[in-house]
Simulated scan of single mutants.
Amino acid sequence: MDSAPLKGGRGSATMVQKCKLCSRENSIDILSQTIKPYNAEDSEQFKTIVEFECRGLEPVDFQPQAGFAAEGAESGTPFNDINLLEKDWNDYDEKTKESVGIYEVTHKFVKC
């Protein structure tokens, strides 16, 4: 994850945006130490997979795209560079001779 410097040498953040009206600098930083996998056992339930530090901005939507990875639950087959832009993905696991997939990706943000 790339980070951008904050004004005045106050560190950096994953996303920095300047308000066009007041010129205030706002930021969202992905707290990389909080990133957790979402496993088959977590299926059909919400689980915290990442935390953000938000200053002046608040996330309201999540658009998954490319770069996700999965592993066959029974076979251990790696599936890399999964694109979830359409919130669904499927493939075929040669080891188990079964179709595998990720379906109906949903999300919610919880304020701490």
Rank of each mutant, 00 (worst) to 15 (best):
M1G: 14
M1E: 05
D2Y: 10
S3N: 10
S3K: 14
S3W: 06
A4S: 13
P5K: 06
P5E: 11
L6W: 07
K7L: 13
G8H: 09
G9W: 07
R10K: 15
G11P: 02
M15A: 08
Q17C: 14
K18F: 04
K18Y: 12
K20D: 15
C22N: 14
C22A: 13
C22E: 02
S23P: 03
E25R: 03
E25H: 03
E25I: 03
N26V: 05
I28K: 00
I28W: 11
I30V: 13
I30C: 03
L31N: 08
S32V: 09
S32F: 01
Q33R: 05
Q33G: 06
Q33P: 02
T34P: 09
I35V: 12
K36S: 11
Y38V: 06
Y38C: 00
N39Y: 02
N39P: 00
A40G: 02
A40N: 09
A40K: 15
D42F: 04
D42Y: 10
S43W: 10
E44V: 03
F46C: 03
T48F: 03
I49Y: 03
E51P: 10
E53V: 02
C54W: 03
R55K: 12
G56A: 09
G56Y: 07
L57S: 06
P59M: 08
P59T: 09
V60Y: 10
V60L: 12
F62N: 00
F62I: 10
F62P: 00
F68W: 12
F68T: 00
A69E: 12
G72N: 05
E74T: 13
S75V: 01
S75R: 00
F79T: 01
D81T: 03
D81C: 01
I82S: 02
L84Y: 00
E86G: 01
E86V: 05
D88F: 04
W89N: 08
D91M: 01
D91N: 12
D91C: 00
Y92W: 14
D93R: 11
E94L: 02
T96S: 15
K97H: 13
E98N: 14
E98C: 11
S99Y: 08
S99C: 08
V100Y: 07
Y103A: 15
V105R: 00
T106V: 14
T106N: 09
F109C: 07
V110N: 08
C112I: 12
